[in-house]
Each structure stands twice: as C-alpha cells, then as structure tokens.
Design a protein around this nucleic acid. Sequence first.
RNA 1: CGGGGUGUAGCGUAGUUGGUAUCGCGCCACGUUUGGGACGUGGAGGCCGUCAGUUCGAGUCUGGCCACCCCGACCA
Length: 492
Amino acid sequence: MSKDLTSRATDYSKWYNDIVVKADLADHSAVRGCMVIKPYGYGIWENMQKSLDKMFKDTGHVNAYFPLFIPKSLFEAEEKNAEGFAKECAIVTHYRLKTDPNNPGKLMVDPEAKLEEELIVRPTSEAIIWNTYKGWIQSYRDLPILVNQWANVVRWEMRTRLFLRTAEFLWQEGHTAHATKEEAIIESEKMLHVYADFVENWMAVPVVKGLKTANERFAGADETYCIEALMQDGKALQAGTSHFLGQNFAKAFDVQYVTKDNKKEYVWATSWGVSTRLMGALIMSHSDDNGLVLPPKLAPIQVVIVPIYKTEEGLSKINEVVFKLKANLQAKGISVKYDDSDTRKPGWKFAEHELKGVPVRIGIGERDIENGTIELARRDTLTKETVAIDGVENVIENLLNDIQANLFNKAKERQINSTYKVDSYEEFKKTLDEKPGFISAHWDGTPETEEKIKEETKATIRCIPLDNTLEDGVCIYSGKPSKQRVLFARAY
RNA sequence: CGGGGUGUAGCGUAGUUGGUAUCGCGCCACGUUUGGGACGUGGAGGCCGUCAGUUCGAGUCUGGCCACCCCGACCA
C-alpha cells in the first residue's frame, strides 16, 4: 500500500532509511557520508531552528558566526579536546589545483600550493571561538558572553546513516564565558533544560536528563549533561549535550579577566549543541509502517486539503468552500496546503500525505458540499470522521493540539514500558537481548566496569539521571557497593 | 579502517557457455475515470557505477577506484 515501505518488523533500519528517502527528507549525495537535505526535510529542520533559536534568544543568547577552518596550532591548544577529535578530522593542506600535464582535461593538486600550516575543518568550534574570546574579554564587565552559532561541522565518521551520523552535519553550538564556576554550571544546566523542553514539547519525544560518565564525557569538558531518548527499537539516542568546560579552554587560550578587586582569573566556559540528528530522533520516535508521522508543531504542512470531484462545476463549488476554510485556518496560524493538482487522484494523495506525515488531512467532495460536512483524518491514529464544516476551524485547532499531546503520551508510555530495573548481570544481558530499552541498574562507579560491560554487551551507560534517588545496592558486574542506579542501553 | 554484499532507464529488477538488454512501476500523448496509490491504447527513455585490462567482440571474465547496505572496530 505505501510505496513499498519496508515494515519495522521486517527490518527496522531499512524501514528508517526508506522513510528518510521516500518521505523526501534527504538523499545520499555523491560525497561519501554526506547527505542532501531535501526541501521537505529542510522545512522540518527550519521549524526546529526557529523554535530553538527563539528559546536561545529568550534566555539571553545572541547569534554570531565563526570560520569553518581552524589552524592546526589553535586546534591542538586544548590537548584533550584535540585528542578526542583527532581521528575524525578533515584537513586542508593545499589551496590550489592545476591542470594535470599527464592527464588532459583533469585537475591535480598543485604541489606548490601547499599551506604553511594545515587548516582543520571544524569538528566543533571551541578552539577558534576561545581564541577569539581572548580578544573580547579583559574585565568582569565583559562577562558573561552568551553566543550561539548555527553552522555545519565535519566529523570523518567510518559508518554513516542519514541524519543519525553523517560526515557533515548541521547544528547549533552555544559557547558561553562566565566569571564564576557557579554561573557556568547554572548555564550548562539551564541549556540542558531548554533542550529537554524543546525535544519534549515540540518534537513530542520524551527524554531522560542526566550526566555522562567520565568515559562518555566530551573531550575537554569537566562535566557533560545530556538528554537521552529511546527509539521504537529500544535503542537509545543522545539527543543533545551541554558541557561545563571548567577553565580548560580559558587556560589553553589564556583567557583571563580582571575581577572587581583587580585580580586576574581564568574565565569559566560552557558549550552546548543539538544537530540534524534530532531529525533521526523525530522519525524513529513516531513514525509507523505507513510512513512518517510528524508532530504538528514541527510539521511544514499541518493540514492538507484534498478535493474529490467528478466535474469542473463540482470542483468550483468545492474551491469556494475550501478557499474560505483555508483562509480561516491560516488566520489561526495553521499551515495549510490545498492539494488541488488534477494530475493525481485522491487515493494517491491520501497515501502520499500519509507517507510524508502530514498531521491532519481534510477530504472534501461534492457529497460534503451538499451536507455541509468535511472528512477529517488524523495521521497519528489513522482514523477518520465526518464533521460539520461550521466551526471546524476550532475543531482542527484542537485536533492539532490533541495529536501533539497524543504523540508525546504514546512515546512516553513506550519509554516507561521499555525501562527495566535489573539487579543481576544475567538478567541484564537477558533483558538487553529480549526486551531492548533502558536498563536501570547499579554500577560501582569505575570506568573499568563500564568498559567491561560495554565490551561484553555493547550496552553503555547513557547517563546518570539528574533526578536520581539515592539507594544502596551492589554493582551488577563487580558486586561492589553502589549508591545509585544508572541508565544503560545499546545506543545509536 | 578490517570482513561480507550490492551497483543494469527516475525507482525496483531479469539477463544462460561472452554477441548493444527483460519485465513491472513511474514518465509522455489521447480517451474513459476521480470518497484509499484507476484503466485502455500508443510512445519515449540505457556509455549496464567508474577507470583500465583480456578478447574479433564485455552487462557478463580480471584488476584498480567510487558509492551504498550488513557485521566488526571507531563514534566528545
């Protein structure tokens, strides 16, 4: 029925790829690991950007833009950060091509155009930004700096998947500078909550807020906060991170400020980011075997109207009603598409808009015109009902809210039902294989144990939940004492 | 980056012992249709991923490269 979409049960990862391509979100490009984001997919990303950007501005941040290239000497300044990213960097070594004398019509790298110093294509921008901040900060009066940038970054990943892990991806990265440790910690926690708010209330994807373990921490951070979401196949996806960077970058780039009592202090830093990976989370959280399911708040088209007619006169009668309805809906801020192209039949349009996840579909035919009704179909439940056209604008407005809430509730229920408390390693392994999801278990707090569990089961500690209750227990692996449970899962 | 697989029209595919390529969907034209991916008739569309080699002749055999998929390693 739905254009040969692989079902989730048949092959979950093929289903995901099928949706991305068939719903016109993105495509593979001629460049290894890099995708083309198509207009429909980009429309969703733009809606995400719009909401997030407003949230950043509302919390006092401003946007700026820093260069794509980072000179190697700057890149290596913060040692841990450089080390963490070294294995996945694209490097510019030359700045010119020339025609190849041995190969007519072909170009070659001009060996004489070798750069004195290599340029690193940013995998993240801390280095170039902190090098810049050095010039911006002298006194406590210059602080805080609350800057965000929307940008692309490159990480040379070995295995890529559309949206989930691409060699180049789009993201935003906030980089803030503060006078005190407390203020920086408050900032990184604040932005974590902004992310959680966005992902839950706009994307309708429930998350667990937590802290990363030392093993999973951002290279160069003192503490990494994260939000973790659970996909339909029971695998976890890190949806956003916020880092408390301590004074690591300030020290690496010698960024000091003069305090009120004329003392020099290193600046405290945070950085935080979410990427086009969120698109992957969105797709895998709500979609079904008929295609994409979009939460109304992010859908490029919230309502699609499909006319059903036999004659030109029939169509013009329908048009009259639809134009008015469309204007009324738009006046309420609802995005509406009237799909009146006569090159497709209604059945085809129904299937197509389902595949693309349009939250609400209106069918309106000559029969409806006589009866003063329309057919309302909702994407999340795939149900339809015939309702009076009078006052339907309010009905639709409420319906969109209902769908938004329903998607979140369904995902939340799934998350709760897929989170298991486990108290032995045997049970831990069994649960991972038989009922994938979050596993809440005791851990002795050592990187060694974490590493062993990862080696043996491929499960990692997703986070130490922020709202954790302390309880005495023993580590499922080592049997050593533990004071709290942490959240394990296999992850994307 | 290691192991395995795939690449033929926009998409999905067939192709035998080596002889310029099959079918379906889609596309175009006309007609009939239009409340869940319509039907008929006619038509167009191909450097068989790419580069080289073997051969009188390569989709088919050999090698390199590129891309994608799966499994590993890697992935703040």
